[in-house]
């Protein structure tokens, strides 16, 4: 157990360090963007106003409210305190909505879309990869080129292809949104059906991208494991093939978990892009509007939330990995 505790503490430490770094970066980066957002808001509000001192007054009022006229360090301290209170301030672009409000109305769309899509893509991809390694032959020859092709498509490429084929040409699914724009969210069957229909294209484009990458990795890991000496030895002791495939699957899966931990950031990034293409009402679209509207607080908060989710997923995966692979414990105990 000592080995695992060391491993756990080590991962926890790194988790905390990256967390702090994430906070700092998330605060600074949006503020380095060119342009003065308060000036932008004011110029929108003040369109048609000819009174310069009136415009000036509005400007100062907003600058005071958002804290953009204070020194950076002070802004940061303020920001950290607010973050821990769950208070991200007002959104510039969707004023007078608060950032917390904007995020809480979009985050569940993203969680509901990406978690299932990445997990299902990962499971299907690994199963297909293991089968390709085990069965070889035609299955392998068909699956692999497709996987390689799919996994090399950029995320938006897949989304655009799905969109053109299934929404524009075949008209099987709607082109955009999370539900019909003429509906008000409620628990009627009509609404749930609309959500379900709108879910399909973004969901499957993320699943497909994930499958491609996972299947390739799992196939080569499984081929490697199938040639391992323990497979031959187990066979010659009379253990059934089905059981041996179980050993191989488990062992080939372990590096795939680390692989998932490493690539989950990229995957989420890709999935956010897919959301944008389907105008899905999740964090991806929120980020886009935030960037276009130079909405500091919203950009900072959404990227922070996404970073936190990715870091947490990563941390949990590594913790699970330590449990599943006894080699970790042995290596850390030395």
């Amino acid at each position: 157990m000592k080995g695992y505790r060391n491993y756990f503490l080590n991962k926890l430490l790194w988790f905390l360090v990256t967390l702090v770094a994430a906070f700092i970066l998330n605060f600074i980066l949006p503020r380095l963007m060119p342009g003065d957002p308060v000036a932008a808001i004011v110029s929108r509000l003040a369109q048609g106003m000819s009174n310069t001192s009136g415009v000036q007054a509005i400007y100062e009022q907003y600058a005071e409210q958002f804290g953009t006229n204070k020194p950076m360090l002070e802004q940061f301290v303020l920001y950290m305190r607010n973050v821990f209170q769950g208070d991200f301030g007002f959104s510039f672009s969707q004023y007078p909505r608060t950032v917390a409000d904007v995020i809480s109305s979009s985050i569940w769309w993203t969680v509901g879309l990406q978690f299932p899509a990445i997990i299902i893509g990962w499971l299907i991809g690994n199963t297909l990869g293991a089968l390709a390694a085990y069965r070889r032959g035609t299955f392998d020859k068909v699956l692999m080129p497709i996987s390689i092709f799919v996994s090399n498509l950029p995320a938006f490429g897949m989304a655009v292809i799905m969109l053109v084929i299934f929404a524009v040409t075949l008209r099987w699914f709607p082109t955009s949104g999370g539900y019909g724009f003429d509906l008000i969210p409620n628990f009627s069957w009509k609404f749930i059906w609309s959500v379900f229909i709108h879910y399909q294209l973004p969901f499957w484009s993320i699943v497909l991208i994930t499958i491609g990458g996972q299947a390739i990795g799992m196939r080569s890991m499984s081929i490697y494991e199938l040639n391992a000496d323990y497979v031959k030895y187990s066979r010659l002791l009379g253990i059934k093939d089905r059981k041996i495939v179980g050993y191989v699957f488990r062992n080939a899966m372990l590096p795939q978990i680390t692989g998932l931990a490493l690539s989950i950031g990229t995957m989420v990034g890709g999935a956010l892009v897919a959301e944008i293409i389907f105008s899905y009402p999740g964090l991806g679209s929120t980020i886009l509007t935030a960037v276009l509207g130079q909405d500091y607080p919203l950009i900072s908060a959404t990227t922070l939330i996404i970073t936190l989710m990715v870091l947490l997923a990563n941390f949990l995966l590594e913790i699970a990995y330590g449990f599943l692979d006894p080699r970790i414990k042995a290596a850390q105990a030395d």
Binding site: K232, Y233, L237
Partner: peptide, 26 residues
């Protein structure tokens, strides 16, 4: 053969015995 011969009548110690055991199994 698998059921009644392997391990029961004839048993085998592999050449690479150091890697003959599944690393993730007690």
């Amino acid at each position: 053969v698998r059921k009644s011969i392997l391990g029961r009548e004839i048993a085998y110690i592999p050449q690479a015995a150091l890697n003959a055991l599944n690393p993730t199994q007690k």
